[in-house]
Design a protein around this nucleic acid. Structure first.
Length: 637
RNA sequence: GCUGGUGUAGCUCAAACGGUAGAGCAACUGACUUGUAAUCAGUAGGUUGUAGGUUCAAGUCCUAUCACCAGCUCCA
């Protein structure tokens, strides 16, 4: 019989040949590396029999699909190990997830301990060492139900399957219901680690029993595994909650309430830099700065649709017996701004910008440092324009985002989210809005992914996910088209024809939540902020008390220039003071000793350990000005 | 919100079976006057998250509550 290879070549193979036989026929090397096969677009075991006319691609370690296979097989290996160690356990499901896998077990009242994880890992390597062949078996549902009669969760799963038959995978003393594919032998699984244990409900439903879930990771090579574990370690070191405490950026107070960040002077300085920068950039681009109140009448939230669609995330209060809602978004006041006078087509586009502090009721269990809070400030803007201007406005925002992200050194990816289940407005308007977004992305020639049904209740959106220093993605900027609120608020402008027309509206943020962005920045830079953002840009350190006055003089001059500078004139050894400044990740340290005082010089130590000694003060000042003004990520020019 | 875990000095952490709450760093005082990642000595600092309860005795056990941490979505 004949099979087709991905390059279109036809290959004659023996009847009944498996994918492995085919690989062997192509080359011994390929057969050795073969993990699975993609037959007519479907992933199958390497031991799968081929049929005449099949298109076959051999999947090797290099293909991304092989990672999923190996992780799934590792999950089975783990279940087998748990089975051997804990007799009464009921196995449930064990899927592949990003960077690894998990498997849920019903242990009755027993909980896994860290020691258990070690024992399970040990048993896994024993089973892998036994080199047990893994084989697929297809049987009728009926037989499967008999075979798994002791496993109530498997029975539930089998019953829910539509097909007449189900596939099972056998490996030694362990059999699991599984679609596959899998590696052909347990010895293939070498580079894995069990990471954590947690409770999880059966099928994610809190009415179901709580299971014990073990998370693990598995890779093709030792290096990959080590890289991944290092990344986890690195992420822990960069945790903004930890660094935020060390650098005294922000705090949370049990007394003040959960999810309400409180900025300390260092965090305040940093935040002020971001906000000042943003105001300047918005003014440059033709935005007007506006301000709205924190609470608005409940009736207005009813009118906007927030009351019906967003109520569970809102806080309410009463003033003189009238109901009010605390704003979870800034759009309402901006609608009021637009409606404050009659608009002509000549006035459009109107772009309103506000650093607006909003409150949202997040469930207590999801709060997480600055990344998930109940009060935060958005760099929010609403643009009102004619339908014809929409494309240009969206492009303007995309360019804006691109420039700002560049200042922080972030790359990013784009997603478009479409109409969700819960939405307001007509399908026609949704289509118009969605098309406007696609159109703009097309004009810019940008790649994007589509996130079906993930839009806001009032409109579709473009989400921009930035990539941090260790490869994690964070959602920050978003652009949302909206034809619905203008309708509800009866916004209009007078066109060239003297008639009333409905403006189009865009909601957008660049940093998103300023708070969240600070959290992301902290993790991205591991607290070592670029000079233009750093809470303290320059620290002046004297060698002995005799040089204190000169230090104060320099501090005064730099402060007058607007730099964030302080002096450490304590009677300590300078090595000690340098060490402290270093731990605080201050970009520049100015060291002042007798030589500097005598000759009107400064000696600068950079955060990276480099020294720029004995500079004229004026020379240093010009360098500092340049670094700050250019918002460079470098410590020196 | 749910499940599990944690909560001790400003910070990082100790205190076996319930039996007087400790250390390092920071702070303060003094000495030393110092040249690129931690000088020495001394002093002070706590109603053990909060509120109840059990006990001769509670940081330790019980109940409630607050906060924090992990997970709860990614379909055999």
């Amino acid at each position: 019989m004949n099979v087709l290879l991905p390059d279109g070549a036809k290959l004659d193979v023996q009847d009944g040949a498996t994918a492995y036989d085919l690989a062997k026929q192509i080359s011994i090397g390929l057969a050795k590396k073969a993990m699975a096969a993609e037959v007519n677009g479907t992933l199958k075991d390497i031991t799968a029999e081929l049929s005449d006319g099949d298109t076959v691609k051999i999947i090797t370690e290099k293909d991304p699909e092989s990672l999923e296979i190996i992780r799934h097989s590792t999950a089975h290996l783990m279940a087998q190990a748990v089975r051997r160690l804990f007799k009464d356990v009921k196995v449930t499901i064990g899927p592949v997830i990003k960077d690894g896998f998990y498997y849920d077990f019903d242990m009755g009242d027993k909980k896994f301990t860290p020691d258990d994880l070690k024992a399970i890992e040990k048993m896994m390597s024993k089973i892998a060492g036994e080199a047990q062949p893994v084989s697929r078996r297809v049987i009728s549902k009926e037989d499967a139900l008999k075979e798994f009669s002791d496993e109530k969760y498997k029975v539930e799963l089998i019953s829910a399957i539509d097909d007449e038959t189900v596939s099972l995978y056998d490996q030694g003393d362990f059999t699991d219901l599984c679609r596959g594919p899998h590696v052909d032998n347990t010895k293939r699984i070498k580079h894995y680690k069990l990471l954590s244990v947690a409770g999880a409900y059966w099928r994610g439903d809190e009415n179901n029993p709580m299971l014990q879930r073990i998370y693990g990771t598995s890779w093709q090579t030792k290096e990959d595994l080590e890289d991944y574990l290092n990344m986890l370690e690195e992420a822990e070191k960069r945790d903004h909650r930890k660094i935020g405490k060390q650098l005294k950026l922000f705090t949370f107070s049990e007394e003040a309430g959960a999810g309400f960040p409180i900025y300390l002077p260092n965090g305040g300085a940093l935040r002020n830099v971001l906000e000042t920068y943003e105001k300047q950039e918005h003014i440059k681009r033709g935005y007007d700065i506006v301000y709205g109140p924190s609470i608005l009448k409940q009736d207005l939230w009813k009118k906007s649709g927030h009351y019906d669609n967003y109520r569970e995330n809102m806080y309410f209060t009463k003033i003189d017996d009238i109901d009010y809602g605390v704003k979870p978004m800034n759009c309402l006041a901006h609608m009021m701004v637009f409606n404050s006078e009659i608009r002509s087509y000549r006035d459009l586009p109107q772009r309103y910008f506000e650093l607006g502090t909003v409150h949202r009721h997040e469930k207590s269990g999801v709060l997480h440092g600055l990344l998930r809070v109940r009060a935060f400030t958005q760099d929010d803007a609403h643009l009102f324009c004619t339908p014809e201007q929409l494309n240009e406005e969206i492009i303007g925002i995309i360019d804006f985002v691109d420039e700002v992200m560049g200042k922080f050194g972030f790359e990013y990816e784009i997603e478009v989210s479409t109409k969700p289940e819960k939405y307001i407005g007509t399908d026609d308007n949704w289509e118009k809005a969605t098309n406007a977004l696609f159109e703009a992305l097309k004009t810019k020639g940008l790649n994007y992914e589509i996130n079906e049904g993930d839009g806001a209740f009032y409109g579709p959106k473009i989400d921009i996910k930035l990539k941090d220093a260790i490869g994690r993605y964070w959602q920050c900027a978003t652009i949302q088209a909206d034809f619905n609120l203008p309708e509800k608020f009866d916004l209009n402008y007078i066109g060239e024809d003297g008639q009333k027309h409905r403006p189009a509206m865009l909601h957008r943020v660049i940093l998103g939540s300023v708070d969240r962005f600070i959290g992301v920045l902290t993790e991205h830079f591991a607290g070592a902020f670029p000079l233009w953002i750093a809470p303290v840009q320059v620290r002046i350190i004297n060698v002995t008390d005799a040089h204190a006055d000169y230090c104060k003089e320099i501090e005064k001059k730099l402060k007058a220039e607007g730099f964030r500078v302080d002096s450490d004139l304590r009677n300590e050894k300078m090595g000690f003071k340098i060490s402290e400044a270093q731990m605080e990740k201050v970009p520049h340290m100015i060291i002042i000793g007798q030589n500097e005082v005598d000759n009107n010089l400064v000696s600068v130590r950079l955060r990276n350990g480099d020294n720029k000694n004995e500079l004229d003060f004026s020379t240093y000042l010009s360098v500092l000005r340049e670094l700050d003004k250019n918002k460079t990520l470098e410590l020196w020019r």
